[in-house]
Design a protein around this nucleic acid. Structure first.
Lengths: 342, 342
DNA sequence: CTTCTTCTTCGAAGCGCTTCGACGATTCGA
DNA sequence: TCGAATCGTCGAAGCGCTTCGAAGAAGAAG
């Protein structure tokens, strides 16, 4: 069973090879009757263009690279959602996705760019001082970053507006009457690595709290049950009048409720909890958590769309921030001060 | 900055294009001096072969497809480890990895095979009655499956030996003196879908228990804390003399210890717990869990190696089962019967 | 009826690489 | 010492596709 080539289709349809090509690409007008005849032959023979030949002749591989980091402290479910949406969206544009890990580093990027294996790059989990960023400028390969480096000048970046996300959480608690609130963040290493989103959430949270005249504290937090429990305990010990908790650590979300239970605090009667996490995680706890969604799918498909636009030579905005959305569930309640604090 | 081609290298080194090609592929002997001269030119010019041209001429894309399912009930961290190890191992063989989701289904497989985009397929999370399996036979594309379909005849399959894993858990508990044990499994849907690994674990567990003269029960289990708690409660209610628990549900592992704590059972004094999960999960709990490792990395790299062998036309075993390893930690203790049951 | 357009379609020239056959230059056996 | 085998290298023929220039057909315009 030899594979079907464009020449086979041309012969079967009784036209020239180039005609078949033009029918398939739509780059020149072809009469309706010829087009139909060609299309019929394509279907009849089960023709699929040879990717290598196409790439060679057109200088377009119709493949994009997805560069995943896969480091500690990553949020797997969100990452997975993201990857899925990238693949799905890319397919809508007739592109495939090459999976690269960050281990290969600069050489890897250089290699795929130079070998014309891919037409563009999608980099995830970009850090504030990401070593890949200067290389990216040097390569001149079309690219889109998920996350923001320190200097996004000349690059195309997409992300959830984490500053707003932090602020929305604080504002929601403020509206519910809370006066003293805390942020339970990502593990310490995430901050140390300078991953932008964690810091931006924190400052959005803190700024909003200040604007609303609330007292706010923040703490990084590891992901094991015991660590979460310990952190929450210390937090409540140091700030007995704490009534609102924002959790920005997906893995810890589940443990926080358990910790509060053990510590004898009811949710939402004693403490209100808002999480920044995907909806399914927030819905699986009890009580279900009021949460701000990380729209992984939207980020992924938007990133692909931007990359496709760049491949077509279109101008795209350097910065795209996706608006977070708050979903109110059972973990936040109107807080009526039992006794005015102080 | 035009891209460097093999002709540029040839000219720079003062040899024929074909000579450069043979130096790089090693398919014909080349004198040491010429080889060195060519290699120097390659490095000097920063030459990277054009992937499309290479694929076209050699009929080998040097790319393999990784087909991920991305359904409910998947075990993300393991899946991620697996994907990483596939990419890393593939690179050792100078291959890249194309990421596909199962959504595209049969058409997707047909497409990448027909377009010669990839040389082979790696399918994950294969089900007992997987619709992709017959297609695979039809396509005749080199492939390796992770997991076992009902009829693996003529296919190449790799997996952890889950039957042994279940058995090892039971045997370990038996050796520690337990007489009545239970298996807390994957969510119900996983069993209903007929994913082989869950069933094989269960039967390995049950058989070993029977051989050792232990009483054994099993239950599927959802992943939220409340569901886990409920399931454990029912289990202990129905079987008050239960002293050993095997957990084969990574997401639930953390919750199980919390549930036992709430129910007033100490680990390992009252109940011993063995988990089937990656080491890092088992180590993060307290007490750290005695566990059987799912060697995701080994599965991934082994799968790639098998696929590479097939691409080279070598014969490979139809079935490769990786031996599970038990790591003893703090969650299982010698059980001394307080009173001989019955 | 001729000339100029416009619309379709065709032929051919690559794209950059691999691979086959061939050809000198050595080396070996007898 | 001569023919045969071996070694190292070269040239050229594709691989299957895109794309450019041009040609034929069919109207439109004069």
């Amino acid at each position: 069973m030899r594979t079907v080539t464009i020449a086979d289709v041309a012969k079967h349809a009784g036209v020239a090879v180039s005609t078949v090509s033009y029918v398939l690409s739509g780059k020149r007008s072809i009469s309706a009757t010829t087009r139909q005849r060609v299309l019929d032959s394509v279907r009849f023979l089960g023709y699929h263009p040879n990717a290598g030949a196409r790439a060679l002749a057109s200088k377009r591989a119709n493949v994009i690279a997805l560069v995943l980091p896969l480091r500690a402290g990553m949020n797997l479910p969100v990452l997975m959602q993201f990857a899925t949406s990238v693949v799905t969206t890319a397919r809508l544009y007739d592109h495939d996705v090459l999976l690269m890990t960050a281990d290969e580093g600069a050489d890897g990027l250089r290699r795929v760019a130079a070998s014309a294996l891919v037409d563009g790059l999608l980099l995830m989990d970009v850090e504030i001082h990401d070593p890949r960023v200067p290389l990216l400028r040097e390569l001149g390969e079309p690219s889109v970053l998920i996350g923001f480096p320190a200097d996004p000048e000349g690059l195309t970046c997409v992300d959830l507006d984490f500053g707003r996300a932090g602020a929305i959480c604080a504002e929601h608690l403020s509206e519910r009457g809370h006066r003293k609130i805390a942020l339970l963040g990502a593990p310490g290493v995430v901050y140390e690595r300078g991953t932008g989103f964690a810091e931006r959430t924190l400052s959005g949270f803190a700024d909003a709290a200040r604007r609303r005249g609330m007292e706010a504290v923040a703490r990084p937090c590891e992901e094991s049950f015991d660590e979460v429990c310990g952190t929450v305990k210390v937090l409540l010990g140091e700030h007995p009048d704490l009534t609102g908790l924002v959790v920005h650590n997906e893995a810890a979300v589940g443990h926080v409720l358990g910790a509060l239970r053990i510590l004898g605090r009811r949710v939402p009667e004693d403490v209100s909890v808002v999480a920044i996490c995907p909806d399914d995680v927030a819905e699986r706890t009890s009580p279900a958590l009021t949460s701000v969604l990380v729209p992984a799918e939207e980020v992924g498909s938007q990133a692909v769309r931007l990359l496709m636009a760049k491949l077509d030579g279109a101008a795209v905005p350097e910065s795209t921030l996706l608006e977070p959305r708050l979903t109110i569930r059972q973990s936040t309640a109107l807080f009526t001060r039992q006794e005015d604090s102080q």
